[in-house]
Nucleic acid binder design. Structure first.
Length: 224
DNA sequence: AAAGAGTCCAACCGCGACCAG
DNA sequence: CCTGGTCGCGGTTGGACTCTT
């Protein structure tokens, strides 16, 4: 292989981003998916802006050189990240939310409010977007129906709200007594009730075993 | 069969936090 | 300390699909 005239990755990256004036929007095509998956396979799911520019390049990491350049992804880094996180990731679980998962979502939402990423973190293979959509399309209605049915009585304990921490790094749920998450307030006639949340007395053992894979119940109780 | 209403979900947007220079 | 780039989050939107009339 003759490397003469083959340019370093950094040079190509900056040229590609220069070239890109129009950013593509809307639904992703199979070709875009393939390009994005390819470039993530090589570089890992990070530096999304750079990845978007690199997609379309055939890159040999052994020699840090670009072998060929085809049309890249006219997508912003944000869009690439979202596509990967919500659709392309290999560990994504497809299919319907099970009853057990639904129950866990309900419990976690009571505890955390609209902290979808935290909730998703307890449900392997499920994305925050998926859970958020599921909540908005199924569960919120279900709860409203139930509340109507039982005359709005949804709580018997004190309320606990979770500070919303938008953006940045790993999620740290800071539990605070006074906080206002606009969205959680909306549903939050549903106040958190420790007794209720951790009351597994009527659960069958099989479910508890499943649940314990995602929540260390003892740990959780101790934290409060 | 057609039109309107309702539902679902992928994708976009705006914002705030983090971090390197 | 400040600033710009980047990332991740929750809210919202819009189009495709399904259901109802």
């Amino acid at each position: 292989m003759n490397w003469a005239g083959v340019r370093p990755m950094e040079e190509v990256t900056s040229e590609l981003s220069e070239r890109k004036k129009g950013i593509n929007k809307g639904a992703w095509t199979a070709e875009e998916d393939r390009k994005l998956a390819g470039v993530i396979e090589m570089h890992g799911p990070k530096r999304w802006k750079t990845l978007a520019a690199k997609a379309g390049c055939v890159y040999d990491q052994n020699v840090d050189r670009v072998l060929t350049i085809s049309a890249g992804l006219d997508r912003c880094g944000k869009s690439c990240r979202l596509r990967w996180m919500n659709y392309l990731r290999p560990d994504i679980k497809r299919g319907n939310i099970s009853d057990q998962e639904e129950d866990l979502i309900l419990r976690l939402h009571k505890l955390l409010g609209n902290r979808w990423s935290l909730i998703a973190g307890r449900l392997p293979g499920r994305t925050d977007n998926e859970i958020k959509n599921y909540w908005n399309s199924h569960l919120s209605k279900k709860i409203k129906r139930r509340a109507k049915q039982f005359g709005g009585e949804t709580t018997r304990g004190g309320s606990l709200k979770v500070q919303s921490r938008k953006g940045g790094g790993e999620a740290k749920a800071e539990v605070k007594e006074e906080e206002t998450s606009k969205a959680s307030d909306e549903e939050s006639n549903i106040n958190f009730d420790f007794d209720d949340f951790f009351d597994f007395s009527d659960e069958n053992p099989k479910y508890l075993e499943w649940l314990s894979r995602f929540i260390d119940v003892n740990d959780a109780v101790c934290q409060f």
